[in-house]
Design a protein around this nucleic acid. Structure first.
Lengths: 340, 340
DNA sequence: GTGAAAGCGCTAACAC
DNA sequence: GTGTTAGCGCTTTCAC
């Protein structure tokens, strides 16, 4: 099975398969590409030859001839460290990779160099990939929105562009999720609510504030107790400090990410405030931070793996010319723990 | 700059560059491949043409003609979730990606399907990549060791193979690191030491036990208080429970990963034991888990990003036929916090 | 349904 | 130093 005494130590080509199977290269190609126009006999012979030789198509040749690359780019921001430090992105990447492993597509990670954005753009537009995935949680994705005009592109998370209408987006329903999380606070008797928001130049940041306000409004309430963080534990701690420094009492906080919540918890603790006795907390992200905080956080689970799978699926369908909805929303779920 | 009125909306080819620059395709190719055998004049003309046209080489064609793919595979285990959940791997991937972004190589993630290991092997051996990176922290990497016979392969972490001698490995010095961590416990007056080890079918797991024993031996001590975990928080908690259930007192524990330590901390707490008063702890991994544990852990920092960079660098040099040492060791460092 | 022929865009000898 | 000539291994019309 591993030791072919007959075959030389050479990478088998399609031509060799054709010879062994006793058919033309065209037929082998048809089999490899699952064309229906092949007789069962020919199919069998070719399949056998492929197995015998251990043939694997050469991507480069295939790609050159077909003008498809079978590769999908996952564009990640230059600040790779921060990117991967976020379990959310890691899970999304995982979902993407898993989905793609079941297809002919290959995933390539490309780092968007902020120093030479042109380089990235050209590479992507230069026919080196069949499509691109943009995990969009950052500042200015306008350049990628432009990219979408010449290449199938799917955004994970709504991009902050002027002309947003025409993009393919896979996202969680941030407004609904944060409304639910805030309502939970209200339903548990908290009235003086605050929020630690995400960056207000990101869609996720903005939408989550919107949900918070919406739930408040439903209850006939209003609050100005908003401080902004950068989705990191440190940012969350600092935001909580600022909230406390205001001197206005609050008994419930919706925090836009579990990482920020974990930081905020520390700040609360250092001020001698206890959760949930003094302050109740709900947050987004059902990740390690949420599960292992003290106390464990009541939070919104946004299945990142599912989002990864979906975003990849949408892109593949887009590439294949299938019909795809512009917006795919991933449902979220509230997970009750001990922070309320 | 973006709107070329003259050029049609077509991907520019090398031939078009040649025409614009008034030279032959060969010359353009030489420029693209940074050959020294080009006159300054020609170089200038070609460079200008490339800029003007926004030319990007077609990888497929390049690869087909040169028989190099300019892609490097990062093989990750099927259990992608667990993989990315570990900040260590995430950082290594990041290091790899960063290093590669400065080269002509592209990184592709390939998921090793345990169901069809042949599929992975064939793909890798089928000439679709120039080399492979195996982040080896798992069970049985023998198949990859075989792979190394037909493809440049570098292992991140020592693989558990019979024939290990001939592999290229980039690793942290686990024995030295765990010796230092254990010695630290001894130097702080702890005498009855235990350890929560990593899986004993992984090199990192084994080596860290070896270091623990070595430090103990130095001090003329010995201990049988060893329980094995799987590097996860849950595994660490369970191992600590078993340790406590033994009924033999201990006042210091070396834990083979920060994730396990964070779990163990919870177990200790639930038994009313305080750290470091009752039990002192040192561990490996200076990650989020170590920094944010209560109390923050005194731990060994193994710079995962550096390892990622190194492993990629070694592979690229290997591919380029440069001379490379078989074993590259990454130095580690003890970080003092509050768990001792 | 199957084969023959013509490239895909580039690199790599080889002459000049 | 530069151009010419062949392909790299595959897909893809187009006849049959």
């Amino acid at each position: 099975m591993t030791e072919d005494s007959t075959a030389a130590r050479v990478t088998p080509t399609l031509e060799m398969v054709a010879a062994v199977a006793g058919v033309s290269r065209s037929t082998v190609s048809r089999v490899v590409n699952a064309s229906p126009r092949v007789t069962p006999d020919a199919l069998k012979a070719v399949t056998a030859a492929i197995d015998q030789l251990g043939y694997v198509p050469n991507r480069a040749a295939r790609s050159l001839a077909s003008r498809r690359t079978f590769t999908i780019a996952l564009v990640i921001p230059e600040n790779t460290a921060k990117f991967f430090a976020d379990p959310y992105f890691a899970s999304v990447v995982q979902g993407v990779a898993m989905y793609l492993s079941g297809t002919d597509y290959t995933l390539t990670l490309i780092i968007a160099s902020e120093a030479e954005p042109e380089k990235t753009r050209r590479y992507l537009q230069g026919g080196n990939v069949d499509g691109a995935l943009i995990l969009s949680h950052h500042r200015d994705d306008r350049s990628y929105v432009q990219l979408a005009r010449s290449l199938p592109v799917v955004f994970g998370g709504r991009p902050m562009s002027q002309e947003g209408e025409e993009n393919f987006i896979v996202d969680v329903d941030n407004v609904a999720a944060s409304t639910v999380a805030t309502r939970y606070l209200l339903d548990h008797g908290r009235r003086r609510l605050a929020t630690i928001a995400g960056p207000q130049n990101m869609a996720a940041g903005i939408d989550r504030v919107e949900g918070w306000r919406a739930a408040l409004a439903e209850a006939g309430l209003h609050s100005d107790l908003l401080e902004e963080g950068d989705f990191t534990p440190e940012g969350g701690a600092a935001a909580m400090e600022r909230l406390l420094a205001r001197g206005e009492p609050f008994d419930g906080v919706f925090i836009a990410s579990a990482q920020m919540a974990s930081g905020a918890l520390g700040a609360l603790r250092s001020h001698g405030l206890s959760v949930p006795a003094d302050v109740a907390i709900t947050s987004m992200d059902n990740d390690y931070f949420a599960k292992n905080a003290t106390p464990p956080l009541t939070t919104i689970d946004q299945p990142a793996g599912v989002q990864g799978t979906k975003i990849a699926e949408v892109l593949v369908r887009l590439i294949n010319g299938e019909e795809v909805e512009k917006l795919t929303l991933i449902p979220t779920e509230l997970v009750e723990r001990d922070s309320v």
